[in-house]
Amino acid sequence: MGIFSRMSDIINSNINSLLDSAEDPQKMIRLIIQEMEDTLVEVRSSSARVLADRKAAARRLEQVRAEAEGWEQKAKLAVSKGREDLARAALLEKRAIEEEVAVVEAELVALDEHIEQLGEEVAQLQQKLGDAKAKQKAMIMRSQTVESRIKVKRQMQRDALDNAFTRFEHFERRMDNLESQLESMDIGRDVPPDLAAEINALEEDERINEELQRLKKELGGDPAGQGGKD
Rank of each mutant, 00 (worst) to 15 (best):
M28D: 05
I29T: 00
Q34F: 14
E35V: 00
E35R: 02
M36G: 01
E37H: 01
E37V: 00
D38Q: 04
D38C: 00
L40D: 02
L40P: 01
V41P: 02
E42D: 09
V43G: 03
R44N: 10
R44I: 04
S45G: 09
S45A: 12
S46D: 12
S47E: 13
S47L: 14
A48D: 14
L51H: 09
A52N: 12
D53S: 05
D53V: 01
R54M: 12
K55V: 13
A56D: 14
A56S: 11
A56T: 14
R59M: 14
R60F: 12
R60Q: 12
R60A: 14
L61T: 04
E62G: 07
Q63H: 15
Q63L: 15
V64W: 13
R65H: 08
R65Y: 03
E67H: 13
E69K: 00
E69I: 04
E69V: 05
E69G: 07
G70I: 13
E72F: 07
Q73I: 13
K74I: 10
L77V: 08
L77T: 14
V79E: 13
S80N: 06
S80E: 08
G82K: 11
R83F: 12
R83E: 07
R83S: 09
E84W: 03
E84G: 04
E84H: 07
D85F: 04
L86S: 11
L86T: 07
A87M: 05
R88E: 15
R88P: 06
A89L: 09
A89Y: 09
A90G: 06
L91G: 09
L91A: 11
L92R: 02
L92D: 06
E93I: 09
R95E: 15
R95L: 13
A96Q: 07
E98Y: 04
E99P: 07
E100D: 09
E100M: 09
A102T: 05
A102Y: 12
V103G: 11
V104T: 02
E105G: 01
E105D: 10
E105T: 06
A106M: 08
A106W: 06
A106Q: 08
E107F: 02
E107N: 04
V109L: 01
V109F: 00
A110P: 13
A110H: 05
L111S: 08
L111F: 10
D112M: 09
D112S: 11
E113N: 12
I115L: 09
I115M: 03
Q117E: 13
Q117V: 07
E121S: 03
E121V: 03
E121G: 07
E121N: 06
E121P: 04
V122I: 14
A123D: 02
A123S: 05
L125W: 00
Q127F: 01
Q127W: 02
L129S: 04
D131S: 01
A134E: 14
K135P: 02
Q136V: 03
Q136Y: 04
K137C: 13
A138F: 06
M139W: 01
M139Q: 13
M139I: 06
I140H: 07
M141S: 15
R142P: 05
S143N: 15
S143F: 07
S143H: 12
Q144Y: 00
Q144H: 01
E147I: 10
E147T: 10
E147N: 12
S148W: 01
S148Q: 13
R149I: 07
I150V: 12
I150T: 09
K151R: 11
V152I: 14
V152S: 13
V152H: 14
V152Q: 14
